Amino acid sequence: MVEEIFTDLAPLAEKNNIALESTGDAVMTGSDTLIYRLLYNLTENAIRYNRFDGTVNITVTHKDNQLVITVADTGYGIPEQYRESIFQPFFRVDKS
């Protein structure tokens, strides 16, 4: 599924010269639609708010009988004063 998401988001990534990388091969059972939407949204944001020539990496691993999915990027991050607010519906950090 990660490769499918990378394919779907490749035009956006190429526009900003963002490298898409993945590691791991763990399997998860659940709603394909919901899992796809979750990973797509996180990956799209990681691309959209990254720096030019950046990287997005999705890692899927097993740890203590749990599946761990990590989406990491080389973007500038969210300023500390906004980190709690990002969980509010419709909140966005000022793009400047």
Rank of each mutant, 00 (worst) to 15 (best):
V2I: 15
V2L: 01
E3C: 02
I5A: 00
I5S: 01
I5Q: 01
I5F: 00
F6K: 03
T7W: 00
T7R: 13
T7S: 12
T7L: 11
D8Y: 05
D8N: 13
D8T: 05
L9V: 10
L9D: 08
L9G: 06
A10H: 12
A10D: 09
A10P: 01
A10L: 13
P11E: 13
P11N: 11
P11W: 11
L12M: 14
E14P: 06
K15M: 09
K15G: 00
N16P: 00
N16I: 04
N17R: 11
I18D: 05
I18S: 07
I18N: 01
I18M: 09
A19F: 07
L20H: 02
E21K: 06
E21C: 00
E21F: 03
T23C: 08
T23Y: 09
T23D: 13
G24P: 05
G24M: 04
D25Y: 05
T29R: 03
T29P: 00
G30C: 06
S31H: 08
S31F: 03
S31E: 05
S31V: 03
S31D: 13
S31G: 08
D32H: 10
T33A: 14
L34T: 05
L34D: 14
L34M: 11
L34S: 10
I35L: 15
I35A: 12
Y36N: 09
Y36I: 07
Y36R: 15
R37N: 13
L38T: 08
L39W: 05
L39P: 04
Y40G: 02
Y40T: 06
N41F: 05
L42D: 02
L42G: 02
T43N: 01
T43C: 03
E44P: 00
E44V: 00
E44R: 00
N45M: 04
N45F: 00
I47Y: 01
R48N: 04
R48E: 09
Y49H: 10
N50Q: 11
R51Y: 03
R51E: 09
G54N: 09
G54F: 07
T55M: 15
N57Q: 14
N57P: 00
N57E: 13
I58F: 02
I58V: 15
I58M: 04
I58R: 00
T59F: 08
T59I: 12
T59G: 10
V60A: 14
T61G: 06
T61K: 14
D64S: 08
N65A: 06
Q66L: 09
Q66R: 06
Q66A: 06
L67C: 14
V68D: 05
V68Y: 08
I69S: 03
I69T: 05
I69E: 01
T70E: 15
A72Q: 07
D73K: 01
D73P: 01
D73W: 01
T74C: 08
G75I: 10
Y76A: 10
I78W: 13
I78R: 12
P79V: 12
P79E: 15
E80D: 12
E80F: 08
E80I: 10
E80Y: 07
Q81S: 13
Q81F: 10
Y82W: 14
Y82N: 14
R83D: 03
R83G: 04
E84K: 15
E84S: 15
I86F: 07
I86N: 09
I86L: 04
Q88E: 11
P89E: 13
F90M: 07
F91M: 11
F91V: 11
F91T: 12
R92P: 08
R92K: 15
V93S: 06
V93C: 04
D94I: 09
D94R: 08
S96P: 01
S96C: 04
S96N: 13
